[in-house]
Design a protein around this nucleic acid. Sequence first.
DNA 1: TTGTGTATATTCACTGGTTGGTATACATCG
DNA 2: CGATGTATACCAACCAGTGAATATACACAA
Lengths: 242, 242
Amino acid sequence: MSETGRSTRERILQAAGKLFYGEGIRAVSVDAVAEKAGLTKRTLYYHFRSKDDLIAAYLEVRDQPNLALFKRWFAEADGDVAAKVEAIFRNLARSTRHPKWKGCGFLRTSVELVNLPGHPAMVIGRAHKKRVEDWLCSVFEDAIGLREARQLARQVILLLDGAFAVVLLHRDPSYMEAAGAAAAHLVRGLMPTPRRSIKVAKVRRTVRPPDWLTHDRAFPPPSAQPMDRGTAAGSRARSAAP
Amino acid sequence: MSETGRSTRERILQAAGKLFYGEGIRAVSVDAVAEKAGLTKRTLYYHFRSKDDLIAAYLEVRDQPNLALFKRWFAEADGDVAAKVEAIFRNLARSTRHPKWKGCGFLRTSVELVNLPGHPAMVIGRAHKKRVEDWLCSVFEDAIGLREARQLARQVILLLDGAFAVVLLHRDPSYMEAAGAAAAHLVRGLMPTPRRSIKVAKVRRTVRPPDWLTHDRAFPPPSAQPMDRGTAAGSRARSAAP
DNA sequence: TTGTGTATATTCACTGGTTGGTATACATCG
DNA sequence: CGATGTATACCAACCAGTGAATATACACAA
């Protein structure tokens, strides 16, 4: 609670974030995190019950900023919904060119904990992906009809996570753009208004619902309060590694 | 290589396959593999130079059978190419319901070795995925005569690998079927023959030229340079880092 | 048949190092 | 004082990989 206490905890989280994301959770020892944070392992264990707790905290920290980034990219893009969705992929493609980019931390963690489905980090990862999907779904509901929105959101998510995996494997950002093109095509195939005029549509045309414009500008939180934080006594299996 | 030698090697590979796929390569020790194979660790090291060699061999074994399975599912399915592609996803969805299913071993290994791009297992994994993509590409070229076959094959691969990741995370096979529907929709959108409406694609446009693949964006990008098309072919092989 | 040489195949016991996690004590501060 | 942090030192378990000895198979000679 003290000032030094909070900053220490955040220093640990920052070090853990860099190391876990950069090298993988099993490849990083608690000692390495402590050393990077500039303190002793014992101090780390004062702030976090276990390595598993630290892993969960590492993902939890990244949850909201990640979704917020998607929303920002979507909001700042011009064009219709399809173009805005594609803009997310385009921004992501730019990110993947950074040498420190290592795919999606949530997916990678879920792979490393594949046999611990109840691990708190897995719960957080699933919740995060669901949150992105729900946000996309709400976006599509506003622009299209209800029924296909869920399926469409899922398919965009599939392309997104597929691109994370494939670009990480091949280290070729063009896959991310191919995914964006596919996503835009899927969205456009379900859009009600025939987009014949290519030129005028720079800014959203005022289609029927006048409220969706305002609704689009101000993004409502997908759900009031997230995070069923808890099950702190998880204490699942150990993560051993060379 | 006497008779016993080969069978011993295969016993090791079988044990390694079950353990590596079931629990992950970093979670499984060499001792565990040796014990499961019913021999000593020293014997294992007689047949394989190192654990990394064993990992590579584990993936190499699965390369051809995996692709052959896709080809079989494709060949045995009825309907047009889109339906045949969708059949792959449907068969895969059935596979994911098996409790021992743990996603794609190639992708999972690439995640665990994310910082060793020159690792032999990574090379094998990339080659495998490329092989599946090339096969799909040739299917689209031969059966439909598509010029955009390469891009289409990549997008189907993206949906495939995305489904592997997402189904593994949520343990919900319906994502695999959603991916299949999306893939079929993408394929069908490029098929030359007049198409009948099937399933998901309810709203159907009647535009002839499938120009969406050529990265046309229906709306002009705000700034001049939309995206820098990277080298479409050629995956850069980064030099190994220890 | 028996003996011997040689390459293959396998085992036991071990190394040096790392792992997640602790016991204990010391420090700082309201 | 007592609560909150931090540090030194330590643990038992586990890790990938190895040295030295041995067991087995087979080829060839006497």
